[in-house]
Design a protein around this nucleic acid. Structure first.
Lengths: 253, 253
DNA sequence: CGGGATTTATTGGTAGTACCATTCCCCTCA
DNA sequence: TGAGGGGAATGGTACTACCAATAAATCCCG
């Protein structure tokens, strides 16, 4: 009798629960290697097919990494873990870039204030580093935006809370493309000025000003993005994949 | 030749990308029914095994629902979509309850202020409803905590940002058990008083007070939780599952 | 003719097998 | 001592067979 036998849960769901516990209790350690699929399947008393489904879920979520000919490993940190789910969340709930920016606007100012309060010298140096990287990449939009977001990540890190940091790294990634498009019609120096003010405020350990400067920047960015999004909406209609044929509510039979 | 043939991506990964696009372009609509697995596999030119892996990923993430004998359906809203990933995130990065509470403390006060600003009459009624539900459940810890969290969810909803709302619903769920334990050593009336103040402040449309009252409550809760967590740490060593045997860095062969 | 019970086809769930390409380890040989 | 080759192990995919749950179609009886 495999695993347990609660309710009517999938074997897959049970397996995932088992892995969760194994990680929680330390039997599996980040970076560690898991037994081969064939062995695992046998010791769990399930087929390899079922086991693979569970492993695939974990891999897509970024919990583990699988390499042919090598093995399966438990990932260490997992920044990417929320990425896929987040994308679907945005798709399914129809969350717009505007709403994502609103979320940033709600959270990031407070985090900037917190950063001003508890940033270490290294944190501040890191923020400064990203600022200079932005200056150096004025002409490369993609690079410029990448360092823009890293700047914000550095502020998150300085604020010292990984939960918000991880959550909003996903939000940032979701906005990446759109921001890159926007950046092409905005003077880099404009963006830089706003970032410099934030950096200076944090450096001065001025919580109120940090909060205000971050708000100032994000309000500006939000409005720019909204306008860009309007223009882009015309291009929404992409090439279709016709592979999928039916989608009726259950064909008669 | 199945799907496409970029790089060395899994068939599973490709399939997920395809589904993502099908959802994005509207070929698949929330609530709609997907073709049977056998049909889908054929039209995509992949085996059912591979297709099922992709579908399983989507199901666990909460994107779709599968029912034997019935079919596969695309979910509408997806509150639960971040749940599993978030749990692993907490596990892998070793995030503590304290850090989760810190995250709440960073975000929820600002959201309370926003709620005071833009809550509709219905929103305020909903918050009040949860407050009364808490009062009615003074003696049932689990129920009391459930409505406690729903109270906060209602505040989120009133603030009007789904992104933060969805993200923190996961944080709340992660904290649920621990809060329930804590609530057993705290006078319910104490918690109620703090919640009433928040409600009154939002009702008065007083942003500053809403922010302060929410901070007051969460600071209190955080400290209670930290103390409870200390006591609990002794019980961390749970029964182990010995099914998994090996975890060495690649057995010699 | 109507409605409940039954049959039947469909669907997702699981197991198992076979084969492939990749990767790594170890052994051999120069 | 070093380089190369062979073999074993690993994850990836496909295919088959069967099970259990579901819902639609059918039958049967009042």
């Amino acid at each position: 009798m495999p695993i347990a036998k609660r309710r009517k849960e999938d074997v897959t769901v049970k397996l995932i629960a088992v892995f969760k516990q194994l990680i929680a209790e330390g039997t599996l350690e980040p970076g560690g290697r898991l037994p081969a699929e064939r062995e695992l399947a046998e010791s769990f008393g399930v087929s390899r097919s079922s086991l693979r489904q569970a492993l695939k879920v974990l891999e897509i979520m970024g919990v583990i990494s699988q390499r042919v000919g090598d093995g399966t490993y438990l990932n260490k940190g997992a920044d990417a873990i929320l990425r896929e789910p987040m994308e679907f969340l945005i798709l399914l709930d129809g969350i717009s870039a505007h709403e994502l920016m609103e979320a940033r606007l709600l959270v990031e100012p407070e985090l900037a204030a917190r950063a001003a309060l508890r940033a270490s010298e290294e944190d501040i140096a890191e923020i400064h580093k990203e600022l200079r990287a932005m200056e150096a990449a004025k002409d490369d939009h993609a690079k410029f935006v990448a360092h823009d977001l890293l700047f914000h990540q550095a502020v998150f890190h300085a604020a010292g809370n990984r939960v918000t940091s991880l959550m909003f790294s996903v939000v940032h990634k979701s906005l990446d493309k759109l921001i890159t498009m926007t950046s092409q019609v905005v003077e880099p120096e404009h963006t830089l000025t706003l970032h410099r003010r934030i950096y200076q405020a944090i450096r001065k350990r001025d919580q109120d000003e940090s909060r205000r400067r971050m708000t100032e920047h994000l309000v500006d960015a939000r409005d720019l993005l909204s306008r860009a999004a309007e223009k882009q909406s015309h291009f929404q209609m992409a090439a279709r994949i016709q592979t999928l044929k039916k989608k009726e509510p259950r064909p008669s039979r």
